[in-house]
Every structure is written in C-alpha cells, then in structure tokens.
Write a protein that binds this DNA or RNA. Sequence first.
DNA 1: TATGACCCTGACGTTAACGTTAAACTTTTC
DNA 2: GAAAAGTTTAACGTTAACGTCAGGGTCATA
Lengths: 170, 170
Amino acid sequence: MPVTTQPDPVLDRPDAAAPATAPSDSGIRISDAAARAGVSARTLRYYEELGLLTPSLYTAGGERRYTDEDLEHLARILELREVLGMNLDEIREFLSLETRLDELRATYRATKGSTTKKARTEQKATLQEAMVLNESLAEQISTKLERMDGFRAKLRHDAQRCRELLAELD
Amino acid sequence: MPVTTQPDPVLDRPDAAAPATAPSDSGIRISDAAARAGVSARTLRYYEELGLLTPSLYTAGGERRYTDEDLEHLARILELREVLGMNLDEIREFLSLETRLDELRATYRATKGSTTKKARTEQKATLQEAMVLNESLAEQISTKLERMDGFRAKLRHDAQRCRELLAELD
DNA sequence: TATGACCCTGACGTTAACGTTAAACTTTTC
DNA sequence: GAAAAGTTTAACGTTAACGTCAGGGTCATA
C-alpha cells in the first residue's frame, strides 16, 4: 500500500470540479517540493512544526508527500514572507483567518440563508474581524508602497546626477 | 570643558551655509536620540560598532552626543531597514557607496575639470559602480512594488467579497 | 533482494540584531 | 558638593528561522 489516504483523493476533492490535468498523484517527496519552491527540506519540516504547512499525504512508512495544492499553499506563505516581510507568526495568523473565511463561505453556501440568529451573528463577527485585518494590512501596504516609491524616485534622481557627471567627464 | 571639538563647530561645518536655526548645540545624549528615532540606546551603540553611525561629538568624559545631522543619518538607516528590508550589512554597503559618491562630487567641484587622466578614470569607475548598484536596487524595488501592488489588489477583492456577504446577511 | 538514494526524528549549532546586567564613571541638579 | 540620573565598556542572554549531524528506517531500481 503506497499511501494512507482512505477516501479517493480525486473524487473527494474539496473543489468538486475535476482538475485540469490529472495529477500524476501520490505527491512528490520533500526534497523535490523544496527544490521547486526554492527552499530547503528543513524549512518545510519547520513550517509543518509551526502548523503553517501540513502535507496532505503521508506514505505508509511515514514520508511526506506534497501535492500541487500544497505547493500553492507554500507559494502563498513565501509570498507573505518575501513580499510583505511578515514573520512566520504573522503569516500563521493571516492564513488562519483566511481559512476561517473560507469555512464561513462554505457553510454560508451550504445553509443558504436558513441560519439561526446566533450563527448569523457569529458569521458577522468573523467577517468584521476579517475586514479589520484586511484593512489594516491594506493600509500598511499602502504606506509602505508610498515610501518605497519615494525611495525609488530618490534613486532615479541620483542616477540622473551620476549620468550628468559621467557626461561632463566626456 | 564640555566638548572635545577643537575647531568651532558652527564655523567649521562641512556645508558652508549657516544652519537655518542656530543649533542649541553640544548635541543630545544617547537616550534622547534613541527616543526620538524610536529605537533603543543599545541599537545606537550597536550601529556605531558596525560603523553605520558615529556620533559627531563626544564629551570630555567620553559620552556620545548626537547632532541633528546624526539623527538624519539615523533616519536614513532606519528607512533602508524598515522600508526596503535591508540588513545592516547591505545598509553599510549602500551608505559607503553613497559617501564615496559625495566625496567624488566634492573633489570634482574642487578640481574643476583639471584632473589627471588616472584620477578621471577612477572617478568614472566609481560612478559606474554607483550606477550599477543604483539600477539593481531600483529594479529590485520595482519588482517588489509590483508584487506588493498585486497583493493589495487581492486584498481589495477579498474585502469586496466580505462586504457583499455582510450585505447579504442584512 | 540488495543497495544506493532519500527520509525520519531528535538534538544541538548558527547568525543577526539586539536585550540585559554588572561595575565603574559622568553629568546634572538641588 | 553630594545625591540622582544617565552613560561607558564588557560580557553574557535571547529569539527567529533555520543548518547540520547522528543513528536508524524507507523507497526505488537493477
């Protein structure tokens, strides 16, 4: 037995639609996953330890197997780290809120409006929380963008002065 | 004797023009400088240890005194750290190149074109180096700006979906 | 089925960027 | 001019995010 997934991994996908290209399945090993993402295997184990990225498959022998979905998740983590400069704790917070939003949307679609008042207020609370974090993040990003843009302008100005000096030197 | 600056600190400024507001002079102590910049005194000592920021004054007793100019320099360091996410080594490299450019401009103006060929080729080399670093930095910033902007767009989209859901919940 | 290539789980090591503390010295203030 | 407040150097401590290594299993392939 190669893999310890009892339910069919294709028919049971959270997203009902069949994937574009049938996955070569059973996932890839950790070193390959790491190489594709440009990180080390140790990093993947560490992220798992922190609860950031759990491979969706394990072999019977206990080896990690990563799916394409896992790799996408990893890419999101790395984007938050590299582009936004978040530390791993902030990333976990952000991702957990994202997950809760997804769940909320799922249950919302499932119950289709016929929810109790209690459930509805809870959903509202989650949505509010999401909005708050979203807006605070967007604001931080905007100010950072402005400052970076200002810096870039200074760089351009400096470059111009360099060019002028070079020109004067014939 | 309060300060160990033999020449007059006002008349001997590198920039000949008199400062807009006569400085209350003799500089501020380390903890005040740190507080103004929003960092710790330890950080200032550490930056000095790394050669990033040397206070322009010392009391006879050996205490650091920071001038407004020092604080501006510190602000630049912090901008490189916070906005661009540079580490302290990268910051030092960048600042040292900036300093060399300033020196180059100074000697250029001083000699007013009457330089030897050897000196001129050296100046050209420095300018080229500066341009290379400048462009590489500008490029990095641009790609980072794009990715951050993309992320912000995703956030906006998410926020919109949240608002729609909230509206549906009446 | 053997064997080389991988992987597992500890566990300790590393680096950057400071934090903290101690013991002695300066500066300021009353 | 003496206490209070602040500073100095030196040295060890801390945290995040992994690196590295040992000892022992697992996988793929010939």
